[in-house]
């Protein structure tokens, strides 16, 4: 696709959204049998699966911590998740995303309850649009809760940015590619604390403040959908034939 002349026309983005609008969002908790907890999230054309195993015995043993569990995170993209086939296995990008995703999630988990154990989070991108790391974190937080792991809060994440001089919520891949700025943010909604922040591009101080407040607004909506997904998972499903 070639760069469009304008990414925002008459206040609307190319997909028809207003600048402060999320793409369609769908979250489902408890989608895998083997994992201790799992979640599936669609945001726009993103299709992302997260699974949690643990707390479980830490291998290799020398990585055990005597007074706490260790949270581990692996972000991975399926070879067919993007236009050009991605070679299987970790690359520098996925290693970095795994690290920042882990650091985004760790503040909410009561790791101290499980000395010597490991909690493993696997984020699997089945279909990538823009915002896979933030959508992955959103899915992982639901999967952690679905695994019954004690948490202070959930973590909701979204990207904001600047496109054609306008601050926008939840970038599309076109906006990510041709926009000026991309800023993924994850927050603990209850205490309004930021647990992930990355940015590339250009913001003035004022634009940054505006973008951050828009990220909070988007995360609030995502947080509501996360809680709803967890409630739906356990809402009464009595298969009574009679």
């Amino acid at each position: 696709m070639e760069k469009p002349e304008r990414l925002i026309v008459d206040g609307k983005r190319l997909d028809g959204r207003a600048p402060d609008e999320l793409r369609p969002l769908r979250i489902k908790a408890g989608v895998l049998k083997r994992a201790d907890g799992s979640a599936y999230v669609e945001l726009g054309r993103n299709k992302i699966l997260a699974a949690v195993y643990g707390p479980r015995e830490m291998h290799p043993r020398h990585l055990q911590q005597p007074d706490t569990a260790v949270l581990r995170c692996r972000y991975n993209m399926a070879p067919f998740s993007v236009e050009e086939r991605k070679r299987p296995g970790p690359d520098r990008r996925s290693v970095e995303i795994s690290k920042v995703a882990r650091e985004a999630l760790e503040p909410v988990v009561f790791l101290e309850l499980y000395p010597r154990a490991a909690i493993d989070v696997f984020i699997e991108v089945l279909q990538a649009d823009a915002g896979t790391r933030t959508t992955g974190i959103t899915a992982a937080a639901v999967a952690l809760a679905d695994a019954g792991i004690p948490m202070r809060d959930l973590v909701a994440a979204v990207a904001v940015g600047k496109v054609d001089g306008t601050i926008v919520l939840d970038l599309t891949s076109e906006e990510d590619q041709w926009g000026t700025t991309d800023m993924p943010v994850a927050i603990m909604p209850r205490k309004k604390l930021i647990t992930l922040l990355q940015m590339d591009g250009h913001f003035t101080g004022e634009e940054f403040r505006q973008a951050l407040s828009l990220a909070f607004k988007g995360c609030e909506q995502i947080y509501e959908a996360q809680k709803q997904a967890l409630r739906e998972r356990y809402s009464v499903k009595r298969e009574e034939g009679e």
Partner: peptide
């Protein structure tokens, strides 16, 4: 069980 305290407020820690 299944909850924690912050100041005078008590929150759930699990589903």
């Amino acid at each position: 069980q299944g909850a924690f305290r912050e100041g005078s407020r008590i929150y759930s820690s699990v589903v």
